[in-house]
């Protein structure tokens, strides 16, 4: 058995759901990069570097935009905000994930019942 962090299957799993996580956090509130990374790595143990290329792609696809905002006693920070299409995307992916997770859970729980 591998450790959680090192198991490639697990890492791919995390990388695959990263997009919906980023969209979801941004649907809640606008974030600057570091804040978003901190928010997500609190819950999911993933290399912080993978989030920035993802943000870049989302921006490229028009799902997020950025704007600069002054911060208290420091240079301005780059904030990420969901666009209209980003909100739609978030909604769709969330629905999809919920359904998928519910199906998988139902299947796994049934297996446990049978084992008992």
């Amino acid at each position: 058995m591998h450790t959680n962090q090192g198991d490639p299957m697990n890492i791919q799993f995390k990388k695959g759901v990263l997009e919906i996580c980023v969209l979801s956090v941004l649907a809640h509130k606008d974030c600057y990069g570091y804040e978003l990374v901190a928010e997500i790595s609190k819950k999911i143990d993933i290399s912080e570097g993978t989030i920035y290329p993802l943000l870049h792609r989302l921006k490229d696809e028009g799902h997020v935009t950025t704007y600069l905002q002054e911060s208290a006693g420091g240079p301005p920070r780059k904030y990420y905000r969901l666009t209209e299409s980003g909100r739609k995307e978030e909604h769709e992916q969330k629905e999809e994930w919920m359904q998928f997770a519910a199906s998988v859970n139902a299947l796994l729980e049934r297996k446990n019942d049978a084992a008992e």
Binding site: Y32, G33, Y34, V37, E48, Y52, G74, P75, R77, K78
Partner: peptide, 16 residues
Amino acid sequence: DDIVSDYSEHFRMGLA
């Protein structure tokens, strides 16, 4: 430049 700004901000915030 856009990408680079993300990474320098990350370093800056992390150090802070």
